Computed example of a mutant assay.
Amino acid sequence: MHLIKHSLRAIPHHIVITKARIRPGRHLTRCNVDWVRTEQNLTRVDRVFARLDREPERPAHLDMPQMSRHRVVLFGLTLAFYAAIVWAVVTTSWLVRLDWQLMFFRPYQQWPEVHALLDYYVVLGQRGPTAVMVAAWLGWRSWRQHTLRPMLTLGTSLLLLNVTVGAAKLGMGRLGPHYATEIGSNEMWRGGDIFPSGHTANAVVTWGILAYMASTPRARRWLSALSAVIALGVGLTTVYLGTHWLSDVLLGWAAGLLILLALPWFEPLINRAEAWIFALRDTWRSRRAGTMPVPAPVGAPTPVTQRAQPDEETPVRDPAAPPRVGAPRGPVHLAPGPHSARSERTPVTPVGSRRPPHPDRTARGASPAAR
Rank of each mutant, 00 (worst) to 15 (best):
Y179T: 15
T305F: 09
F81W: 12
L246Q: 00
H199W: 05
R220N: 09
A225N: 09
I194L: 10
R364Y: 11
A214M: 02
A50M: 15
H339K: 15
M133T: 13
V249N: 00
M172G: 05
L62C: 00
R342Y: 10
A60Y: 09
V33R: 04
V134D: 03
P357D: 07
D193W: 12
A262M: 05
R144Q: 08
T243D: 13
Y82K: 06
R361S: 04
L95E: 00
D193G: 12
A231L: 06
A211S: 14
P357A: 12
E312N: 07
S7C: 11
I22V: 14
H178F: 13
V351T: 13
T237A: 04
A300M: 13
K5R: 15
N41D: 14
P56C: 02
A300L: 09
G25D: 00
P368H: 08
M64D: 12
G208T: 01
L250K: 00
A135Q: 07
N186H: 04
G155T: 10
A363M: 05
P368R: 13
V332A: 12
P56Q: 08
S157Q: 13
A50T: 11
G192H: 06
G337W: 02
R371A: 03
V134I: 10
L8E: 10
W245Q: 00
R37Y: 13
I230H: 08
I209S: 02
P293S: 11
G176E: 06
R9V: 07
R324T: 13
L158T: 09
F49D: 04
L246H: 02
P338L: 15
D63P: 09
V33W: 02
G290Q: 11
T29F: 10
G192T: 03
K169M: 05
V348N: 09
G155W: 03
H358T: 01
L263N: 00
L161G: 01
Q109E: 14
L152C: 07
A296N: 08
V348W: 01
R354G: 02
L260V: 03
D282R: 15
N41L: 12
A341T: 13
P12A: 13
Q66D: 03
A300T: 12
S142Q: 00
R23T: 15
R221W: 11
W35C: 14
D311G: 08
V96P: 04
Q145I: 07
P24I: 04
P359Q: 02
R354V: 06
A88F: 12
